[in-house]
Structure formats: C-alpha cells, structure tokens
Computed example of a mutant assay.
Amino acid sequence: MKKALLQACAVCVGTTGAYAGGIDRSGQGINLIFEEGTVVQFGLSYTDPDVSGTMPNIFGAGEPVDSGNIANDFFTPHLGFKTALTDQLDLAIIYDEPFGADIAYSSAYPLSINPFNPTQANSLRAQADIDAITALLRYKFDNGFSALGGVRVQRVSEARIGVPIVGDYSFDAGSEVDFGYVIGVAWEKPEIAARVALTYNSKITHNLSQTEVIGGASFETSTEVDTPQSVNLDFQTGVAPKTLLFGSIRWVDWPQLDVAPPVYTAAVGSSLVDYDNATYTYSLGLGYQFTDEFAGAVTLGYETDEGIPVSNLSPTDGFWSVGLGGTYSLEKAKISAGVRYTDIGDATADGAFGQTADFTGNSAWSVGFQITYSLG
C-alpha cells in the first residue's frame, strides 16, 4: 500500500512539472533514494504555458501592443537508478533538467524592435537548457534517521538571449560543465508511513564563454553565472487507514542568478538577467489507496508573489496550482500519471523609456507519467 501511495503522491508533485519561479523546472527532488531494493525509474512531463502581456507603444501612438504568448511549451525528463549497497547504505543516480527557459515575444512588441532598423523582423527572446546528473548516497542509522550527501554534475548546453531594442543585442554562450553538491538529513517511521527529508542544493558556478553582438559588432567575452542554491523540505505521514498526507516547501535563492555579460552591462548599465528576491514554493496533498493495485492523490501548490517589477525575460510573479494523479501497481512495476493546472500570478515587467508592461490572466497545463521498475 505504502509504495503505491508514494508514487501517486510523487507524480503530482514531481513528474507533472510546473511553471515555477525564475527558471525552475524539476524542483531537484530526491525521492528516488527512498525506494526499496533496486529500481530503475523513467519520468516525462509536458508543460504548455500561456503567458502574455501588453506594453504601451513607445514608438508611436495607439493601443498598447500585445506580446503574444511568449512562453513555449517544454518537456522535462527524469531518469534514475537506485540500489542498496549494504543494509545501511543506499545509492541513487538521478538525471534531471533543473533549470530552463524558452520564451519569445511577438516581433511587433516594442522591446523586439531595433530602433536603428525598425523594419527588421526580430524578437525579444531567451533560451537556456540546463541538465544535471546527481550521485547521491544515503546512510541509515538505527533510530530512523539517515544522512544524505552527493555530487551534482551540471551542464549548460545552450544559453541564448536577444534584446533587439538595445542595438539588436544578442548573447550566445557555449556549453559548460561544472560541479556542485547535495547534503541533507531524513527521518522515517514506517509504521505510520511518516518521513521528513531536508536537503540543501549548492549553487553551481558556470564560467560561460559567449559571443555578444551589438550594433553589428561582435565580441568574444566571458561571464560568471551561478545557478542558485536551494533548500527542499519534503514530508509525509499516514493520517487514516489507506490515507497519506504529504507536502513540501522549496526555497530558491534567485538573487544568486545574475547574468551580466560585459558588453551589455557597459551599454545599458545593468544586468541582462537578475532577480531581487528568493521564492518560496509550497505544496500539500492527500493520497488514498482505493484498491490493492490503484492509489490516487490530489495536490495544491502555491508560490509567493513579491508584487515588484520583474524581468521581461521571466514576467511572472507567484502561482497557485491544483493537481490530480494516480498509480497502478503491477508485480514489479508501478505506472503513474498526473495532470496539473497552474494559475500564473500577474506581474509588472520593466519596460523602456519609463514604460512598463502588464502580464495578467496567465496559466499553464502540465501532464506527466512515471514508470518505476523493480530489479529485485
């Protein structure tokens, strides 16, 4: 019963994805390390966001200009392997895509227009693909407590940004691989399906080499970029027969992410991408075992909003969400699926020439599935 419930809960929280703060994608979950025995796991989520706003036409009179749907849909994969090295020591290898971005504005949007060549078709845009492999160890003590620790190898495979209004500026960085770490503690009481896990994910510093182009001139430069540190608190407990209460709190230190390439910074006097505040993301759910083979769960999610101007390259401010998921258990496999709706918080984005942009009424749908197969 407990294993199926855990998977039903996890699919709502993890594999259905979310349109979270900053460029958060996977949530950097480590629930795989708590599976029993030796297992392999595959998950895939798909998120279809709808994010748009309007800005006054700074190049002429008339109605505000619509941005179009700036947020492209995306897939988030998850792969994992877990095994027990000894009675007290477990090992998990986890692949995920912790951070990412893929946005593009309408070519008619004021910030998509090169003032020196207004007829040039272009777009304010940003694309970043970041994936990671985490090797995680868990040592179990005799009193229900355990210690977690591991190494994360993270790769920036692509980072591209275009800001046409700044002399048709573009930023194109090459691939870079760097290292961070994960540490944590956990406590379990199997008799009531209780567990609390606290994990810390270190920041990872990437020294990017990129090409910056502005006003038709090209420059080869370098920039130090940190993906932010974060803390995850995950908890669960049985509250009635066949019923599990579960949830999580995630804190991400977004001000550590500051992209300040030298040419852009010299031209504009500010960073290309930065954040003023950390985010707190909360989730709470309830799972129920309907039959010996099937369990279901419902989750609610909330992320705090700051109510301050945000970057045009991440024009959202908080969210709330609701998700449904279920797991069907076979002899050696557990198959989970889920769906989540996210109401994306309204935001005011920095504009140009004293004007700002308003993003309201935005949302996202996410679906996902996960297969966990026991190897013994």
Rank of each mutant, 00 (worst) to 15 (best):
G174L: 10
T119N: 06
A267L: 03
D274F: 01
Q210W: 01
D258K: 13
A61H: 04
T223L: 14
V153A: 15
F235Q: 13
D172A: 15
L257K: 01
A159R: 00
A92D: 10
S311K: 01
A357I: 08
L85M: 15
Y282W: 07
V156Y: 05
A4S: 12
S271I: 04
V298D: 07
R25P: 04
V163L: 05
F81G: 10
D24L: 14
G60F: 06
G22E: 07
W320I: 11
D276F: 12
A121N: 01
Q41C: 15
S222M: 12
G361T: 00
P309D: 09
G325A: 09
A217G: 01
Q210A: 15
N232C: 13
D253Q: 12
L6H: 04
L198K: 04
K334N: 11
S283T: 15
A295C: 10
G215R: 07
T86M: 11
N362C: 06
P241E: 11
V39G: 05
I183N: 12
G238F: 10
S230R: 00
A260D: 05
L89E: 09
Q256S: 13
S311I: 03
T299K: 06
Q289H: 02
I249M: 15
G80Y: 03
A18L: 15
G21L: 02
A364F: 00
G376N: 11
D131H: 14
I204M: 09
Q236L: 04
Y139P: 12
I308A: 11
V196F: 04
P190G: 07
A104F: 00
D87V: 10
T54L: 06
N312H: 02
V268S: 08
G60C: 08
R138H: 01
G184S: 01
A71S: 10
N143C: 13
Q7A: 15
Y264P: 14
E212Q: 09
I204A: 08
V213Q: 09
S106I: 01
L6Y: 03
G37T: 03
V310P: 05
I23M: 11
G144F: 00
G144W: 00
I58Q: 01
S157V: 04
A173Q: 02
T205S: 15
P262S: 09
